[in-house]
């Protein structure tokens, strides 16, 4: 039985997870009102249309807020402190993720810093993370 915190995709969210495996941030957009949204869902939370699609987002984002967790989940494979972050995507949605590939310190993690989507893998699982945008690391 998988660890209860290992994400289990559903048919409705599978395209997002397929995107992770392909190295692409794939989220929903409403064809009726144009709203981009997250998490994946077959209905637009803005206008209730079910005429929605997945699209490949830019991966551009900024760091809205974060904590630095002192004892991360063992699945991450390291017990070093790591960030848990609120990420604001360029397309609008906010999501929870982690900023990686940089020092996990308040000095290295500045609010509003530009970030770029990246992906990290654990065995069969590939998850969305973010890293400092190029030229900002």
């Amino acid at each position: 039985m998988p660890h209860p915190l290992v994400p289990v995709p559903t048919p409705e969210t599978q395209p997002f997870w397929d995107g992770c495996n392909e190295g692409v941030l794939r989220i929903n957009r409403c064809r009726a009102c144009g709203d981009a949204y997250f998490p994946p869902s077959p209905i637009c939370p803005e206008c209730s249309s079910t005429n929605v699609e997945f699209f490949d987002a830019s991966g551009e984002a900024t760091l809205y807020s974060y904590t630095i967790q002192q004892k991360p989940l063992a699945l991450w494979g390291s017990d070093s402190p790591r960030s848990v972050a609120l990420i604001k995507l360029a397309e609008g949605p906010m999501l929870t993720s982690s900023v990686i590939n940089c020092e996990q310190t308040p000095e290295a993690l500045q609010l509003d810093m530009p970030l770029q989507a990246t992906f990290t893998s654990f065995d069969d699982l590939t998850v969305l993370c973010f890293e400092p945008a190029e030229g900002n690391s």
């Binding site: 915190l5 869902s41 974060y66 989940l73 699945l75 848990v84 972050a85 929870t96 998850v127």
Partner: peptide, 25 residues
């Protein structure tokens, strides 16, 4: 819920690391 897929993994479900996310902002 969607938390199992899109949220809990990053914090290991630790409330102190996620519920508190707005504090720094």
């Amino acid at each position: 819920g969607t938390g199992q897929q899109f949220d809990m993994f990053y914090s290991g479900g630790q409330a102190a690391a996620t519920f508190t996310l707005p504090v720094l902002r």
